[in-house]
Nucleic acid binder design. Structure first.
Length: 256
DNA sequence: ATGGTGGGGTTCCCA
């Protein structure tokens, strides 16, 4: 089972790039973030033509997530539990071939001195509580997406310059570690402990891509039952080099 | 060198 996660930075603006990549990479499951459109205007038909079942959770202009799957998606939930007043479209979860799979768009949190940062931390705590609940089922669980978390200094091109950024400051990293401490495995770094740099995002500005000034912020967290089935986890830099690229590139997890 | 890029929706927000 090949599962990809990709922050596409607008499904509509990226549609040719996305369909081209899906055709060549042929993942069984795809987790999108930042579709940047309402659910009704998500280009689902283009993906259905490629053989995918589609479930999108959108909102106007910002955020938005989706799951695509070659086999049916059941028992779908469309929001992260807790904080009922939170209307941002950042979470969708369903069951595919016995695996509980979520597409996560964790809040960015910048600037740190505003309400955005406490919102990020509250969202991470909600994720931690829900991730703990998911473990109780003892089924394979895959939480994939744009976490907006740089787990360690080796995952950012300039750790000193990024020290107080919402993606890297210690409070953010500790909260991420709390989720791992429940018993989740971060697939990429577990499989490639010495592979640095290995980035999944490069800003559009200041020549970040040609200079390889990147961040590794797109992750897969696996429950023990899913971690037992890990075959591979790779970053495909191909899409970032294309014309009209997203600022993120896909990460692909393969489970037995 | 205190800018730079990009998407979406409007005269600016978000990343």
């Amino acid at each position: 089972m090949k599962i990809a996660t990709w922050n596409v930075n607008s499904a509509k603006a990226r549609l040719p790039n996305i369909t081209e990549w899906l055709t060549e990479a042929a993942p069984d499951v795809v987790l999108f973030q930042e579709i940047k459109c309402e659910t009704a205007s998500f280009p689902a038909a283009a993906f259905e033509e490629l053989g995918y079942h589609v479930h999108a959770v959108g909102q106007k202009a910002y955020n938005g997530v989706a799951i695509l799957s070659k086999t049916p998606i059941t028992d779908i939930i469309t929001r992260l539990p807790g904080e009922v007043e939170d209307e941002q479209a950042r979470y969708v979860e369903g069951t595919i071939d016995g695996v509980r799979i979520a597409s996560i768009y964790l809040p960015n949190g910048n600037p740190v001195g505003t309400e955005k940062y406490p919102y990020k931390l509250r969202w991470m705590e909600r994720l931690r509580l829900h991730a703990a609940d998911l473990l109780k089922s003892e089924q394979p669980v895959v939480l994939g997406g744009d976490y907006n978390v740089i787990p360690a200094a080796e995952d950012v091109y300039d750790p000193v310059g990024w020290r107080e950024d919402a993606l890297f400051r210690q409070e953010t990293r500790l909260k991420f570690q709390e989720i791992l401490a429940l018993g989740y495995t971060e697939a990429f770094r577990t499989l490639h402990p010495g592979l640095v740099p290995a980035y999944s995002f490069w800003d559009y500005q200041a020549g970040a891509w040609p200079r390889n000034n990147g961040l590794r912020i797109d992750h897969f967290l696996l429950s023990p039952q899913a971690a037992d089935r890990i075959v591979a986890c790779e970053i495909d830099k191909g899409p970032r080099a294309k014309e009209k690229a997203s600022d993120h590139t896909p990460v692909i997890l393969t489970l037995a």
